[in-house]
C-alpha cells in the first residue's frame, strides 16, 4: 500500500519520462515525439521511509481535453485525487510550458514545478530565475537536469514537504476579462451541488467553453460522493 500518490505532468519533449525513470528506476523508453506515453506508466519510489506512487501522464501542451492524451492527463489530475502533481517544464521554452503549469494551478494548489533541462538552457544562453518563478507561481520550483540526476533529491524533498503540509502554496490566480469573470461567478452559484473535492471555478470555466467531456467526469465523481 502506497502512502502518497503523485502525478507527473508536462509538455512533450521536456524530459518528463526521464524524470519518471530516474525517480522510479523503472526502465521505460523515452521518445522524442508528442504522445509517446499514451498509456499511463506507474512506478514507485521510497523517500524518508515512505512509499510514493508516481503516475506518468501523457505529455500534453494543455489540459483542455482536445485529444485523448489531454483528457487522460486532465482526468487524472482532476478526478484521480493525487496528493501532489509535479509539472515538468522545459527551461528553454518557458512560455509554452507555463501555459500548462497555469492550467494545472487552476485545478489544484498541490503543485511542484520541476524546471528541467537547465543545462541546455545555459548552453543556449537562457537564464531562468527559478526563485523568482516560484514567487510568481506561488508554488515550489526545483531546478533539475534529469538525465544526469541533478536536482532530483531536492524534487523529492519538496514533494515530501508539500504532501506533509510543511509548505503552504499560494498559487497564482488567473483573472479573466470582466465579461468572462461575470459569467464565471454566475455559473459557480449554480454549481453548489458539486462535491467539495471539485474546484467549482475550474468546472465553470470548462462549461463555459463547451467542454462536453467534463460532464462525464463530474457524473462519475458525484456518483462516488453520494454512494
Amino acid at each position: 500500500m502506497s502512502d502518497y500518490l503523485i502525478s507527473l505532468a508536462g509538455n512533450p519533449n521536456t524530459g518528463k519520462s526521464t524524470v519518471f525513470n530516474r525517480l522510479t528506476g523503472l526502465k521505460q523508453h523515452t521518445g522524442n515525439w508528442p504522445g509517446k506515453t499514451v498509456l499511463q506508466a506507474w512506478g514507485f519510489y521510497r523517500y524518508q521511509n515512505e512509499q510514493y506512487t508516481l503516475v506518468d501522464l501523457p505529455g500534453t501542451y494543455s489540459l483542455l481535453a482536445h485529444s485523448p492524451e489531454e483528457q487522460v492527463a486532465r482526468d487524472f489530475i482532476c478526478f484521480g485525487q493525487p496528493d501532489a502533481t509535479v509539472v515538468v517544464v522545459d527551461a528553454t521554452s518557458l512560455e509554452r510550458n507555463l501555459n500548462l503549469v497555469l492550467q494545472v494551478l487552476e485545478i489544484t494548489s498541490q503543485v511542484v514545478v520541476c524546471l528541467n533541462l537547465v543545462d541546455e538552457a545555459k548552453r543556449k544562453n537562457i537564464q531562468v530565475n527559478a526563485a523568482k518563478l516560484g514567487d510568481e507561481l506561488g508554488v515550489p520550483v526545483v531546478e533539475t537536469v534529469a538525465r544526469r540526476g541533478i536536482g532530483l533529491k531536492e524534487l523529492q524533498e519538496q514533494i515530501h514537504l508539500l504532501v506533509h503540509g510543511k509548505i503552504k502554496t499560494n498559487p497564482l490566480k488567473i483573472h479573466y476579462p470582466p465579461e468572462l469573470e461575470n459569467k464565471i461567478s454566475d455559473l459557480i452559484k449554480q454549481l453548489h451541488y458539486l462535491p467539495e473535492s471539485l474546484n467549482k471555478r475550474w468546472v465553470a470555466l470548462r462549461l463555459l467553453e463547451g467542454d462536453q467531456s467534463i460532464l462525464r467526469g463530474i457524473q462519475e465523481v458525484t456518483r462516488l460522493a453520494f454512494s
Partner: peptide
C-alpha cells in the same frame, strides 16, 4: 471545431 482548438493549444 477541433482544428481551431488544436491551434489554440499551441498558443
Amino acid at each position: 471545431g477541433l482544428t481551431r482548438r488544436r491551434l489554440l493549444d499551441l498558443g
